[in-house]
Design a protein around this nucleic acid. Structure first.
Lengths: 140, 140
DNA sequence: GTATCTGCAAAACATTTGCAATTCT
DNA sequence: AGAATTGCAAATGTTTTGCAGATAC
């Protein structure tokens, strides 16, 4: 669910008690859509939630992932990012500005061979390159 | 190149001096095709190369990736794996046996939308689920 | 003999764990 | 009160860095 009007209600429907920290973290993910790391979330929320600890962010994100509220993005090996959009979509990372962008994946246009008979539960599709904005800046 | 007859020559063509450690590590990757972590490589080669250190494996793999001899596989957030097959293909991880399998990906232009005008340099396509062997064992 | 490469030890990071204090119901 | 949650501090595990010795050209 990317459009969430009542975060507390949404968390409850996912069997997660809506504590203040959990609501704020999910709200952050849904509003920013910046595919943040734990560190990014911590730095952006620590002024709003003065007692916030990284442990709580780790605990919360783990809970979110287990209960289908968020997914893990492993587009880079030295940073684990999170996304509250759990629908099937791809992630593009611009190696120039380090931004991560969502894109639509049409599975019907992707043909996989060599894993016939396998059961697929998760799709992770990552692309890397240069985004349009960085490309236009290169031309200057 | 997955079929490499002369590893030393191949490394030289990639501007990498073929030291004994580098040749052995690449040979390992090409023969095993097991998408290993640094730790796996270390444990499998330490008896053959008694003085081998993990630092050398880290150094070597970094060099391989920079020079297009290997690619990084980030299918799991707690383990960085490597593959000496640098051609476009996908990786399937069985969450039951933890095996990683290669598969062929046929990319169609229509497959991705929302990143028009972006330049794509790398494709990372990861699937997770259960492999055929583990599925057959489940039925018992 | 000078560059490069290797590998030990220490440092740097990210993540997890143990546990006590706090907060909910 | 009792259960769940938070957050500090310590532990763990992986990767990087500094550097001295070994090796190659």
């Amino acid at each position: 669910m990317v459009e969430v009007e009542n975060i507390g209600q949404y968390l409850t429907s996912k069997d997660i008690r809506p504590s203040m920290q959990r609501v704020k973290i999910l709200e952050y993910l849904l509003k920013r859509r910046n595919h943040p790391t734990v560190d990014t979330i911590y730095n952006d929320l620590k002024d709003e939630i003065l007692t916030l600890s990284k442990t709580t962010i780790y605990n919360t994100l783990k809970l979110f992932v287990e209960n289908g509220v968020a997914i893990v993005i492993n587009i880079e090996d030295n940073e684990t990012r999170y996304d509250a959009d759990t629908s099937l979509h791809g992630h593009f990372k611009c190696t120039k500005c380090d931004g991560v962008f969502d894109f639509t994946v049409n599975l019907n246009d992707l043909a996989f061979s060599g894993i016939e008979g396998f059961t697929v539960n998760e799709h992770h599709i990552y692309l890397k390159g240069m985004c349009r904005v960085c490309k236009s800046k290169e031309l200057v």
